[in-house]
Design a protein around this nucleic acid. Structure first.
Lengths: 265, 265
DNA sequence: CGACACCTTGAAGAGGTTCAAGAAATGTGG
DNA sequence: CCACATTTCTTGAACCTCTTCAAGGTGTCG
């Protein structure tokens, strides 16, 4: 099944399963600097193709860093909004709650992604951001972002794109929640996660889930038992290997076929 | 049941059921001008508290108008993105499609609301916007919005808020799709629609649905039969009167209780 | 006025949930 | 480092909500 030694060694580097020899450099913690211009995540959370002068200005966006322990909240529903947060390391979930206490995971965020956009409209956050593993974020005061994006066009454009991207992502989740069956949802979830991890230099077939079955279920509009059963079924079908939170995708195409069933007659 | 004469008279003004004497002025078509500064919808789609100088500049945001006939698309998935659209009159749905042809209504938009935000990130639209009744929109070229919002802080802030508001709205839909039962979804849908109409000067208890049961179902992640049955059940319970697309809410509190069931023991 | 789209309602069926119990992993404190 | 408590995960069986399939009714538009 799993080479646990390998996986745990890899995890000490970056908390996700990676194949031997894979490019982990993008996330190694040795190169931490205060400036965006030197940040190895820049290409994920900042605009590309800036002049040196613009790069120097961009550095002012990040006021400081903050560490968030696993289980702690970065911000909470109702709190005053002041800043966006760029995730440097770690893994978050965001969730909203209804008045009667049900709650819904609205997303899982990893290194290079931005959280806090929900807070802009009412100057208060409308969801919780919870670290699913020890994390570090860059604090980007929003008034500073607005100020700077008036002067650096690429930054302005970038901010707009980040927000638009989130809108498009949520459209996709609505499609998933509104029209897919359990197996399709779980398959889409796994493919999405592994694709994002792969974009960060991790394996495209092996991953470690940072969230519980219950959190996956909440995100997918399913009960935890259904998520568990679906994993078991995929395993029975030889599509994935699942051992608790370790997942290895054996047959990516099969997963894709589940998400987008071919009409073949 | 319904005073059809009244309803249709009202509809000639603004396409939605209104109680006698209600403030319809906000939507009367007589005052159409090219400038935002004179637009009676300004408070819905433009920032408040601008100086006269700023107001004059804002007028440049709207390049022109466009009429869209019922059933026609304002934009379509895959089309090049150039502009945001502010709805002046009429009613739209937006929907995304999966590769295998399923589609999902992601929202219903009415006067004063903005559509097209999905197109910013990839410079191509990722959903369709379809007019559910004859409509007119203001075309706001996005490069002009960006240009102007560098100079008019209130506009910049406003653009950010509009996008954030859309993100928060979609969070709410995810909560609905992920954790509510059919009756809760339909109740939430009716309350949301009537609340938005009320904010535009229409009745807070009576409305005309511009969309089919199938479109409601798609939005709510339900089949059209379930939507129909749920309407019938609410009618049996004396909570609403439903006659095809005409809906009168008899007991708003009952609807609210359905959305947020009280835990009372 | 007739064709077509839309809506309602019933009955049977399926997919996912609920409830329950046990197993596996994880964390804690001695 | 081990024992124990706790959390998390898996699996089964009964149940329920929503879907599917079908038929008929109603409204709308050319």
């Amino acid at each position: 099944m799993f080479d646990n030694k390998l996986v745990s060694r890899v995890e000490t580097v970056a908390s996700h399963a990676v194949k031997p020899g894979a490019a982990v450099v993008a996330i190694t913690p040795q190169t931490i600097k205060v400036a965006c211009s030197n940040c190895n995540l820049r290409e994920l959370c900042m605009p590309m193709g800036l002049s040196q002068a613009e790069l120097d200005r961009i550095d002012d966006v990040v006021a400081s860093r903050r560490k968030v322990k696993r289980g702690d909240t970065l911000f909470r529903n109702g709190e005053k909004f002041t800043s966006l947060f760029a995730i440097r390391t770690g893994f978050f979930k965001t969730c909203v709650a209804s008045e009667d206490g049900r709650d819904q995971v609205t997303g899982f965020q990893m290194a290079g992604e931005i959280v806090g956009l929900d807070g802009i409209v009412n100057e208060h956050h409308t969801c919780d951001a919870v670290a699913l593993e020890d994390a570090e974020v860059c604090i980007m005061p929003f008034d500073r972002i607005e100020e700077l994006s008036r002067e650096v066009n690429a930054l302005q454009r970038h901010v707009h794109k980040i927000m638009s991207r989130e809108i498009v992502r949520e459209n996709g989740v609505m499609l998933l929640l509104g029209s897919m069956r359990a197996e399709e949802r779980v398959a889409a979830f796994l493919l999405n996660l592994v694709q994002r991890l792969h974009a960060r230099g991790f394996s495209s077939s092996e991953l470690v889930l940072r969230m519980t079955r219950e959190e996956i279920g909440s995100y997918l509009g399913l009960k935890l038992e259904t998520v568990s059963r679906t994993f078991s079924k995929f395993a029975d079908d030889g599509i994935v290997e699942v051992k608790q939170r370790h997942v290895r995708i054996i047959n990516t195409d099969a997963l894709k076929d589940i998400v987008n069933p071919k009409i073949c007659n």
